[in-house]
């Protein structure tokens, strides 16, 4: 596993290098892995990399790009929208010569066009948003401040909003609210039930589960090498 970079196009023109974690041995099968979004990304990070380790062992190159504005990205998240993430994933797919894609959870909302692969445990953007809004309302209440989900959502569309520690623009919130995983030819949905165990994105603390990583990697490896 080594750090790589990919050129991420900027909306103002030009590009900036973003990091990606990669297992690259120049093999035929090359998988782009799109991470879960926001707080789920943290809870799913180890699981995601564990799946990649298994796929590397099975003979598949894998790449996990940073989303612009997240992790080590030099870009300001507050200026970005989901469309920028989709553009970045498209650029990463091309740069790494991806033959297939695996999107985790909300990562399936920013799939590059015309690539086949898998979407594990799809989720609506509206659900991600509601959970983060709710967490903020609950935290504020503990601090003695009264906020409401509807009030915050309306204010956020105008001025942007800090949710789960992420500064999100009004445009980011607006697009997220409307994004939902749509059935797409070539993208196979892997429901969590197939992987089994209790879902790692729900955990109160980041956790891992080798059995779940085995299961997801097996599904991908069988499909990719078939």
């Amino acid at each position: 596993m080594t750090p790589h970079t990919y050129p991420c196009p900027l909306s103002a023109g030009g590009s900036v290098d973003e990091y990606a974690l990669g297992f690259d041995r120049g093999r035929k099968e090359r998988l782009l892995v799109i991470p879960a979004l926001f707080d789920e990304a943290n809870r799913m990070r180890r699981f995601t990399v564990e799946v990649m380790r298994r796929l590397d062992g099975a003979g598949i190159d894998c790449f996990l790009p940073d989303l612009p504005g997240c992790n080590e990205s030099p870009q300001d998240l507050a200026l970005l929208e989901p469309e920028d993430w989709a553009t970045a994933m498209h650029a990463a797919a091309r740069h790494f010569g991806a033959s297939k894609v695996l999107a985790i959870r909300g990562g399936g909302l920013i799939l590059p066009p015309a690539i086949s692969g898998w979407h594990y445990a799809p989720v609506k953007g509206a659900n991600l948003l509601k959970t983060m809004l709710r967490a903020r309302v609950l935290a504020a209440r503990e601090a003695g401040v009264t906020e409401s989900i509807d009030g915050l959502a309306a204010e956020g569309l105008e001025l942007g909003l800090d949710l789960a520690g992420y500064p999100l623009s009004g445009e980011m919130l607006r697009q997220l609210q409307g994004l939902a995983p749509a059935p797409r030819a070539g993208i196979t949905v892997i429901a969590h039930e197939l992987v089994g165990g209790s879902p790692l994105w729900l955990r109160a603390e980041p956790d891992e589960d080798p059995i779940q990583a085995d299961a997801l990697a097996a599904v991908i490896a069988m499909g990719a090498l078939a």
Binding site: N127, K130, T131, M132, A164, W201, L202
Partner: peptide, 19 residues
């Protein structure tokens, strides 16, 4: 009784209950 349940975890629980 469960200090690890911060507001994010409670929010996740509520969304999951709704679902």
């Amino acid at each position: 009784h469960l200090p690890e349940l911060d507001s994010m975890a409670v929010a996740g629980l509520l969304t999951e209950l709704e679902d």
